[in-house]
């Protein structure tokens, strides 16, 4: 755990952080809004005392109430992973800015997040489905998408979806992440 990194982040980004810097094991976590995300990531990449030059991961998260985009960065200046969470993306019309201008390698990861969650990344020139076929309609990793033969979490628990004649009205109700996780 790199205490110096936490204080440096708090000092440099203090105003844009939505929550205090959190640290656990070798992970440092910050939260920024959709509008601040790209400028913050640019600052983390460009400024020599941070130098987070490596984008290790980009993914979408559906908490059941909102969407998030989560970035994991690595730097040569610290042994900590930096996790940048962009919370509060609207579930019904998820739309954030693309990271492709900073890390062109994010293109496919954004395509994957679009495919799986329907998150639209503004500025990605190639935002189309990557795993699912082009004529596929839903976004499988959303929490209101149930596996055909797994009904254990659905409102119709115990009944196999494939064997059900009709879809119950509340079958699209999403499982929500518990508040206590701080997500």
């Amino acid at each position: 755990m790199d205490r110096a990194l936490a204080s440096a982040l708090q000092e440099r980004l203090g105003a844009t952080l939505l929550a205090p810097v959190r640290q656990r094991f070798d992970e440092t976590e910050i939260r920024v809004s959709i509008a601040d995300a790209i400028p913050t990531l640019r600052a983390l990449h460009d400024e020599p005392n941070f130098a987070f030059e490596m984008l290790i991961d980009l993914c979408g998260v559906d908490t059941g109430e909102e969407m998030q985009v989560v970035y994991h960065l690595s730097s040569s200046t610290t042994g900590d992973w930096l996790r940048v969470i962009v919370p509060g993306v609207d579930r019904n019309a998820p739309r954030v800015n693309s990271l492709v201008s900073l890390w062109p390698g994010a293109e496919w990861m954004e395509r994957e997040a679009y495919d799986m969650f329907g998150i639209i990344f503004e500025g990605n020139r190639d935002l189309r489905r990557i795993y699912m076929p082009d004529d596929y309609l839903s976004h499988p990793l959303r929490k209101d998408f149930y596996l055909a033969d797994d009904a254990s979490r659905s409102p119709a628990a115990g009944v196999r979806n494939m064997e059900r004649a009709g879809t119950p009205a509340d079958a699209t109700r999403a499982t929500a992440l518990r508040k206590s996780s701080g997500a």
Binding site: D57, W81, S181
Partner: peptide, 16 residues
């Protein structure tokens, strides 16, 4: 409840 990132250096790169 919480979040964690685990990564290892695989033969092809960072596997997380």
């Amino acid at each position: 409840p919480g979040r964690a990132f685990g990564a290892v250096e695989g033969p092809r790169g960072a596997y997380g």
